[in-house]
Design a binder for these strands. Structure first.
Length: 362
DNA sequence: AAATGTGTTGAT
DNA sequence: TCAACACATTTG
């Protein structure tokens, strides 16, 4: 599939529609690039740029990419086979995205000589080193999960940061490494600014599986205009966006964010109930949304128990404690005060995990 | 109702 | 292994 003569620049992140596929070695004549919006059921109305083809074709357009299959709604699925079984890699808006997902899986599943749609990662290329390491340090299932959740790039980026810190750290003595790494992590967290907070309502943590984002904040911080604006008489709610938020433990939460016409409100839906469950959120608790500054613009989510003491920042004040001969952070009052449930444990675990890495690295 | 993912099958 | 396609299941 991939021929070294064709050079696709995969380094650019956004998937522009002008993505030209590698010269199709197998499939017939390349089909015209996807039409902007395809609506509705399995019926696909294909209009070729040249001559309009019959609207009668009930057939789904096949993809010129390996491992990419059409979905009835005009999107694209990615899949790979292993041991006579299909492994589903998720659905994507653009063929190119699906093709990249396939490539990633192929390289994790089949290694060096996997046939890919685009330029494969090469051990010779220093730029690929980090990703290759990343790939092989995760189970296949984990990679698949990331692809399906569309969090692969984020996790990879995260891993790259660590890699860089580590290699920089090699030039420093142990003490310096500690402060370097912690200082770096600190800076990472502190460079986020809070967008807004909301005290969650009973329905936000109830069975509706959604969080209402106050309109004022939603429109200011989470603009939601993109996507199909064709005069669709349907959908009472807009299609929405998928937003990734990182919590203080580093876990990535992916929520669907959309506007519900019925209630004239902006909401986080898919994924939200899992957050409520895992954090054991109760009505009155406060969730905070943050965004890191310019370079990465990453989103963060934080929460604190109802009424809780002061603060409003991402980080609560911490105090050093000595353990195993190494300083670790502790959240003040976590042992004494009873009202904070497991958040302190979580924060503590987070700090500890950072520290563990340091210890392990020593 | 729309979107996602699986059951299956026939073709490499 | 692979993609086509019907359709069951899950989500919104």
């Amino acid at each position: 599939m991939y021929s070294s003569s064709t050079c696709i620049d995969e380094s650019t992140t956004s998937d522009s529609l002008s993505l030209s596929p590698p010269s199709p070695l197998l499939s017939p004549a390349p089909k015209s690039p996807e039409s902007p919006c395809r609506v509705g059921s399995g019926t696909s109305v294909i209009l070729d740029s040249e001559n309009s083809i019959e609207a009668e074709s009930r057939k789904l357009p096949s993809s010129r990419f390996k491992g990419v299959v059409p979905q009835p709604n005009g999107r694209w699925g990615a899949q790979i086979y292993e041991k006579h079984q299909r492994v589903w890699l998720g659905t994507f808006v653009e063929q190119g995205e699906a093709a990249r997902a396939y490539d990633t899986a192929a390289q994790r599943f089949r290694g060096r000589d996997a046939v890919t749609n685009f330029k494969p990662l090469s051990p010779e290329n220093p730029d690929d080193e980090a990703e290759l390491t990343f790939l092989n340090s995760h189970a296949k299932a984990e990679i698949v999960d990331m692809l399906r959740k569309h969090t692969y790039n984020e996790e990879l980026e995260q891993s790259r940061r660590k890699h860089e810190v580590d290699t920089n750290g090699k030039r420093l003595d142990n003490n310096a490494r500690i402060s370097h790494i912690l200082g770096g992590a600190d800076k990472l967290l502190k460079s986020t600014r809070q967008l807004f907070e909301k005290s969650v309502t009973p329905s936000d943590v109830g069975k509706l599986n959604r969080l209402v984002i106050p309109k004022q904040h939603a429109e200011k911080h989470f603009p939601l205009q993109s996507y199909c604006s064709s005069g669709s008489a349907s959908s009472s709610s807009s299609k929405g966006l998928l937003l990734n938020f990182k919590d203080v433990t580093g876990k990535v939460w992916r929520f669907r964010y959309s506007y519900w016409n019925s209630s004239q409100s902006y909401v986080l839906t898919k994924g939200w109930s899992r957050f409520v469950k895992e954090k054991n959120l109760k009505a009155g608790d406060v969730v905070g949304f943050h965004r890191s500054s310019e370079p990465d613009q990453q989103l963060f989510i934080d929460w604190k128990a109802k009424g809780g003491s002061g603060s409003g920042g991402v980080l609560e004040p911490v105090q050093m404690v000595r353990l195993f001969g190494v300083n670790i952070f502790q959240v003040p009052g976590s042992g004494s005060c009873g009202g904070k449930r497991n958040r302190d444990v979580e924060l503590l675990a987070f700090e500890w995990s950072k520290k563990s890495r340091v210890i392990g690295a020593l």
